[in-house]
Design a protein around this nucleic acid. Structure first.
Length: 120
RNA sequence: GAAGUUGGUCAGGUAAUCGCGGAGUGAUUUAUCAUUUCGAGGAAAGUCCGGGCUCCGCAGGACGCAGUGCCAGAUAACGUCUGGGAAGCGUGAGCUUACGGCUAGUGCAGCAGAGAGAAGACCGCCAGUAUUUAUUUAUUGGUAAGGGUGAAAGGGUGCGGUAAGAGCGCACCGCAUGGUUGGUAACAAUUCAUGGCGAGGUAAACCCCACUGGGAGCAAGACCAAAUAGGAAAACAAUGCGUGGUCCGCGCAGUUUUCGGGUAGGUUGCUUGAGGCAUACAGUGAUGUAUUGUCCAGAUGAAUGAUUGUCUUAAAAACAGGACCCGGCUUAUUGGCCAACUUCUUUU
RNA sequence: GCGCCUAUAGUUCAACUGGAUAGAAUUUAGCCCUCCGAAGGCUGAGGUUGCAGGUUCGAGUCCUGCUAGGCGCA
């Protein structure tokens, strides 16, 4: 996956199931992020962008690129596994809008992670 | 100048910053850094055809099934392409066509209509007979020119002919069969001969004829590693599997069901190919041959983007992203550019 | 990636070998029945047969191309 080493992504079905089974959700109009706490010293990213989002491969690839870029650029204070799900009908929005909304979401995740850490 | 037809071609260039996939090299070291270099399309799409490649021992035979369908050629092959013929459309350049066979057979054609296929007398027309004031009515025949029905009614026009009519006869046109000429052929022409013309529609109805096709697909297949119990019971063996429509042939020897148990990680296939560029020659053309020089994505939850300036521009905007690889077809789609040709208008 | 299947009233299904107004249940509107409802009865409404072409005198049905939805293969 783009710019991320293998240990920085969720690769197989087991990894994804771990996140789906127990997670905290953060969302807005465009995306839904699932957070799953781990003990690793780095964050891992998985993407779920189905054909329902858009039938065209070009559009899906565009969304993936934006997700990865924001993930890479964001400086995480504490690390977790993340799965980003795209909602349908977001392909009409420009790259700028999607980048903005994703950055806001990443900000939101930080206090949530702190909460999980405290509870455990 | 305007409108149009056909064919071909392009898909931004450039600078800066951030960023991505492969390969090579060098460091540290086993996953990062530095650097060099390469990195999506005309449709990469739909998966509608054809082939390569791989496995099924061989890809053999018969039936079945499916596909194609004017002729000749091109090609690895095709349902593709090129050239030609025929029919239809357009003033024209041109475009379109599942375009073999219902005089091999069988079927189908609702309703309407007299009759729907070697047809047919409902109205009408004509003749005979009977009847009547009456060419009025009835009846027996003849008749396909006219009316009417229908999507479709068994050559057309004219003249002769006749009781009325009729290819009944003749002329012209059309048609069929045979010949002749041209053409590789489809087919065309015909001042030739014969036939009065009878056996229409539908084969994207069954079917007949000719030709083609064995099946599955890179999730094919090969290798490495890991794991488990090469276990138990019953049935069959003129059987079962390979084999995917059936049978024969061929190969293997156990096979099937139930109970119980287990795995799915990596490497390879994976890119040098019916490749592509240029030139010359052959051909009307599709295409082929020769020579020079060239390497042009190989990823694996899957890489080409973002921001800003600038150039051509009215506006860099349309459709859209490889997943084994090629040849086509079809569908989506924006704005140019080039060439050839057609029609109309104006000027000389 | 590869191999397949389906589409008819709002919903669930029919429609023979192409033949005429596309039928039934349910839904829905009105009326009858009842003191009022339910059930029942009567009369209606509701369809560009997924879309676009073609074959045929005639297409829901046959053929071709699209669109949408679904299934299987490690």
């Amino acid at each position: 996956m783009t710019g991320l080493a293998k240990h920085q992504r969720l690769l197989n079905k087991a990894d994804f199931n771990g996140v789906f089974s127990k997670s905290v959700k953060v969302s807005n109009a465009f995306f839904l992020i699932l957070i799953h706490k781990t003990s690793t010293p780095y964050s891992r990213l998985g993407l779920v962008i189905s054909k329902k989002v858009d039938k065209r491969a070009v559009q899906r690839n565009r969304i993936k690129r934006i997700c990865r870029e924001t993930f890479r650029k964001f400086v995480f204070e504490s690390h977790c596994d993340f799965v980003v799900l795209a909602r349908p009908n977001i392909t009409k929005n420009s790259n700028k809008d999607l980048t903005l909304s994703l950055n806001q979401l990443w900000e939101k995740t930080q206090p949530k992670i702190q909460q999980i850490r405290k509870n455990s």
